[in-house]
Nucleic acid binder design. Sequence first.
DNA 1: CATCGACATAACCATACTGTTATATAACCA
DNA 2: TGGTTATATAACAGTATGGTTATGTCGATG
Lengths: 126, 126
Amino acid sequence: MAPALDTTFAALADPTRRAILARLALGETTVMDLARPFDMSQPAISKHLKVLERAGLVSRGRDAQRRPVRLEAKPLAEANQWLESYRALWEARFDRLDALLQKLQADEGAPLPPKPGRGRKPKEQT
Amino acid sequence: MAPALDTTFAALADPTRRAILARLALGETTVMDLARPFDMSQPAISKHLKVLERAGLVSRGRDAQRRPVRLEAKPLAEANQWLESYRALWEARFDRLDALLQKLQADEGAPLPPKPGRGRKPKEQT
DNA sequence: CATCGACATAACCATACTGTTATATAACCA
DNA sequence: TGGTTATATAACAGTATGGTTATGTCGATG
């Protein structure tokens, strides 16, 4: 259920998808409405939506033949939390650096070697 | 110079790269030292470092035959800033929602249609 | 029922990503 | 000089990504 940071960040790495999220922040809307401002086919938008959905960043409803799209903020919050833990670094707050270092070592800091071997992306804890 | 959010988020979407950043938060270090905990060849790490470097997330020094890697926090701060603007959404702070909507419309909110045409990823303002 | 509108799916293409092994480069060291 | 260490680069392979066009599906509606 909780999509990893991998998926979230990957979804956010595309400007079209970020624009879609920005649009959705204004409120739930339809695929057609989302597609309109882009110079892109409708299926392309559907694909982007699927990516966002798999990342848990949007959810879909049902309204007759329409499939309203709604923003889901939770993964954003998680990504934010990850970034937040580095805040001390760009704020050069050395008093907070200790806390940061502790946290990083506990969290993702010194993980067991991700053993991708053949797989594409090493799984991490959810 | 300022790598777009595209590049930053893409760089963050990989767990190996996030682990590298976490390690670098503890301080500057060498490629070999970075590679050690991973079950991955040295060239693979070099490639990841190149991705991080292109994203402006790390910078390289020179110490004899060593190429020490240092974390650069600025892109993290920028990504954080982007996420931050959505904070109201996951905090359900409706008083902040107005500010959010204003900001989104000014920023990336309702962008001119990204016209990818043939190109891979529509460029956005730096 | 026939069709339209909104959307999803399929098949396809080009390019990018992530890993590999093998090899090159560059600085130090005996 | 010749070897070793640290890192980069090249060539290759498999999968993923982001777009396309064509077609399918489902619900509303004349």
